[in-house]
């Protein structure tokens, strides 16, 4: 009877552990439907400062505390970046990306995922990072074939001053 009881206790423990081990990697989770692909628009880019540095007048310099006197005033905050992206001729992203940071002097950032069916697409991406209000400073258009479960990244390289597809 004693051994039967121990066997029962052991069986309960094993059953619990088996259940736990099963849920440790099952059921499978599928993040997006089969046959889909991920298009990821992501980059970090700093636009120009909102205003150019300005020479301070003698009176303005005089007003400053002696230990903080400088000849130029350079506003820190940056202008936002405007980005557009089309996929297969359909606009999927239109946004003003504000600069980051408390003083709005950090780079603008974007990290946006799009789940689309696999297939052949024309990808067009455009960015405006200067004071201009019409047209774009950087553009790239390409035709790509997206296979299922692929991650297609639209990035921007500040060194090359151009969009990078990978």
């Amino acid at each position: 009877m004693k051994y039967l009881r121990i066997a029962g206790q052991f069986a309960v423990i094993v059953a619990l552990f088996l259940a736990v081990s099963s849920f440790a990697n099952w059921p499978t989770y599928r993040q997006f439907p089969q046959g889909s692909t991920v298009v990821l628009l992501t980059f970090v880019h700093s636009a120009d400062r909102k205003a150019e540095c300005r020479q301070l007048t003698a009176q303005e310099i005089e007003k400053l505390p002696p230990n903080m006197r400088r000849v130029q005033s350079c506003p820190r905050n940056r202008r936002p970046i405007y980005v557009e992206m089309d996929l297969g001729g359909r606009p999927i992203f239109r946004k003003n990306l504000p600069p980051s940071g408390i003083a709005s002097d950090g780079p603008s950032r974007v990290y946006q995922r799009f789940i689309v069916p696999a297939g052949k697409y024309e990808v067009a991406v455009r960015m405006r990072d200067t004071p201009r209000t019409e047209g774009f400073d950087h553009m790239r258009t390409d035709t790509v074939t997206l296979v299922p479960d692929q991650t297609f990244v639209v990035d921007y390289s500040s060194e090359r001053s151009d969009f990078v597809f990978h």
Binding site: F10, I13, V14, F17, L18, S21, S22, F23, A24, N25, W26, P27, T28, Y29, R30, Q31, F32, Q34, S36, T37, V38, D149, Q150, T151
Partner: peptide
């Protein structure tokens, strides 16, 4: 019991990372 379960249902990896591919279907630890 834990050693028994470890032998019967060992924890295994789910294939090498491929950053060019999205990890669409994965066996989650719930």
């Amino acid at each position: 019991a834990m050693v028994g379960v470890a032998l019967w249902n060992p924890a295994l990896s789910q294939g090498h990372v491929d950053l060019a591919k999205a990890p669409a279907g994965v066996g989650l630890d719930w």
